[in-house]
Amino acid sequence: MRSGLKGGASGGRLRGATASLILCGPAVALYGGFIVLPALLGFAYSLTDWTGWTGTPDFIGLANFRELCSDTLFFKSVRFTLFETAMIVVFFTFFSMALAVLLDKLRVWKGLIRGLFFYPYVLSIIVSALLFTYLANYREGAVNLLLRALHLDMLAQDWMADRALAPYFIFTLVAWSGLGFFTTLYLANLQTIPGELYEAARIDGAGPLSVFSRIQFPMLLPTVTTNSVLALITGINLFPQIVVTTQGGPGFDTFTIGYYIYHLGYQKDRLGYAAAVSFMTFAALVAVAAVQVAVLRRRQVSL
């Protein structure tokens, strides 16, 4: 009887392992083949001077990483990326929360107004960026045409090519296209807050500010974690917006890390060095994301 039980247990484990292999195997194989393996190959290429034109790159050890330490354009790209990311994280974490709370209070045209905010997210990033390129053209862009029509010619600017304005132009594009998504996550979270809590607060005489600070904000913290991590990823990965609009200009002013990697790999034919930049960025991102998630998880509350 005991051995029968033992045999049954080991058979169950075997069946479980087989089921796991069947269920997870394809996903693991695809993830390994298309994500992990290329990442490992990327690191291998970072140790070479590969240009992409030949199949036999030369091994150069850590020379690319040494060059990276004194690469002023890389650090300029990092600074710009962090500047954009800071604005994006703050905006998508807090402004979209405030907007979600306001939209949650809507009683009329609820679906329509929420839909209007979500609509830009449905557009591809390329379409959104092209749209902004047309809007922001100095001579014929809708923004400047409107300003001129209102006799505010002095406010008409070269939004994309003025180095003081270009960073905010990029931010506005990202904010416009992503706001609906981040707001929707908060709205979904707001729907999960039990009505009893609001009822109790009302009986206790709590005002809107107290309801927000004592009930909604603590209950939204899991989404704050999610949104801030997603916003961080959005900021660090800024690339298509740059390619379509400023192409890194004026000069090198709007180079993000992603655009710099593209510039190195495809405009300068330095794929080995581009791989080194990618690897360092990846390592830095993993560290930042780990710290961010650890800090935010500690602050979450659960019912």
């Binding site: 200009g249 002013d253 405009q267 034919d269």
Partner: peptide, 20 residues
Amino acid sequence: PPPSFHDLMARVMQEIVAGT
């Protein structure tokens, strides 16, 4: 010159147009 030299000259001109 390196193939990206024309792009580099364009970026220098962008800098000048932008006020550098």
